[in-house]
Amino acid sequence: MITLNNIKKTYNKGTVSAVQNINFSVNKGEIFGLIGPDGAGKTTLFRILTTLLLADEGTATVNGFDVVKDYGKIRDCVGYMPGKFSLYQDLTIEENLNFFATVFGTTIRENYHLIKDIYVQIEPFKNRRAGKLSGGMKQKLALCCALIHKPVVLFLDEPTTGVDVVSRKEFWEMLKRLKAQGITILVSTAYMDEAKLCDRIALIQKGKILSIETPEKIVESFPVKLFAIRGGKAYKLLEDMRAFNGTDSCFAFGDALHVTFKNDENNTVLQYLDSKGHIGVSIETITPTVEDCFIRLLKK
């Protein structure tokens, strides 16, 4: 459904590089995640694919149409939710939705079945102005607006940024239901924990793709054993583990330290921590998360 070939884009007359040599394709009916921090180039890619920006080099297609030549046809068949998108603050929910439906040449009634699940949650407030909605409700309304014309491909640029956990969970539930209806979804996020909810993900940093895989395979490809160390005084433990000469990497992860060693068999570490005065320290092997993988890829 979406293909990118050697896409490159620079800003300020070539002095600032946004993305380089981007190649990937998204299959029909797939949720594909672009995972990376702010400034990684996610928004640039979205804008190239939605025909809003021209790439310096390379080609890309959406639904079989070229993003440069057939931009009109692409604009007919995609739904897009930009990162900063905040709707018309001074229009009500219903007015916003009606407006976007008409702009896309359709009516709310015609495609109501697509948005019904989402819309019923915000319908009680339909006469409230968008500027007075909570983050989660705004996000739902924005999704309704992006869906109202029954797009075959949906582009969602950081839809969950700044939204609380409850709304984020609900939002991903909605994406799953849309996927079941055959809509292809390209979604970007800075939250690593959302990666596991995608079918496939591309990890992106500083305009380059570090890896493209299913979340499971990315985790499987973690090359060394990962240990979780718990106990004692957190900050001291962190400092001491970093100072340990067998340590390859050591990062705080929630209540534990995630540690990799230069050599997977490491029996001396507990002794070492004991000698530093840590009491009740436990160590166990764990399955890496996508975030562990991302950190490891960044370190390289």
Partner: peptide, 10 residues
């Protein structure tokens, strides 16, 4: 607001 992006894509 970012609405211009949507309108252009429509």
């Amino acid at each position: 607001l970012g609405t211009m992006e949507i309108l252009l894509v429509s």
